[in-house]
Amino acid sequence: MAAVSYPIGTAGPLQAQSTIESNRFPPGDLAIWVFILAELAAFGAFFGAYAFTRMRNVEMFNHYQASLDSDAALINTFALITSSYFVVRAVAAIREDDSRGCVQWLLAALAMGLLFLVVKGHEYVHHIEAGIRLSTNKFYMFYLSLTFFHFMHVIMGMVILAAVAVKANRGGYSDREHTGVETGASYWHMVDLVWLILFPLVYIMR
C-alpha cells in the first residue's frame, strides 16, 4: 500500500485539507476495507430482501411498522451520527499528535455507542415482553434479524474503538503513524452508514 508521509512542522492536517493531494487508497488498513465491502454487501442484500418481501405484504409491514418506537430510533440515529463525528475528531486529534485528545474523543464516541446499545436493548426487552419473536411474522423476522445483526456490529465496533483507545492512551500512535486509529474509524463509520439506511427503511418508509 502506498504511503504518503508529511514532515512534522508542515501545515497541520486541518489547515492543509484544501491543498492535499488525492490518495489511491482509503484511510486505514486496506484489509479492513475488504471486510467493510463484504459487510456492506451482506447488509445490502438484506435491505433488498426486506424491500421486495414488503412488496407482497405491504399492509402487514405498514401495520407492524407503526408499532415500532420511532423515538428510540431517533435517539439511536443521533447517537451513531454523533459518535461517528467524535471518531472524526479523534482521527484529527492524533494527526495533530494529540494522543490525549484522541483518547477523549474515542471515549466520547464509545459513550454514544453505549447509549445506542442501551436504547436498542430496551426496545428488545419490550418486544420480548410483548411476546414478539422471529417467527411472529415476516415483518418482525426482518426487523429483529436486521437490527440484531447491526447491533452485533455496534458491539464489535465498540470493541475495536476501545482497543484503539487503550493503545492511544499508551502512546501507541502519533501524527506519523496512526493507521490503527484510521482503521478503527473506518469500521465505525461503516456501522453508522448501515444504520442510516436501516433507520428510514424499517422505521419510517411506508
Partner: peptide
C-alpha cells in the same frame, strides 16, 4: 503510515 484523507473539522 499517515495519510490525510479526511476533511477539515469545520
Amino acid at each position: 503510515m499517515t495519510r490525510r484523507t479526511a476533511f477539515g473539522i469545520r
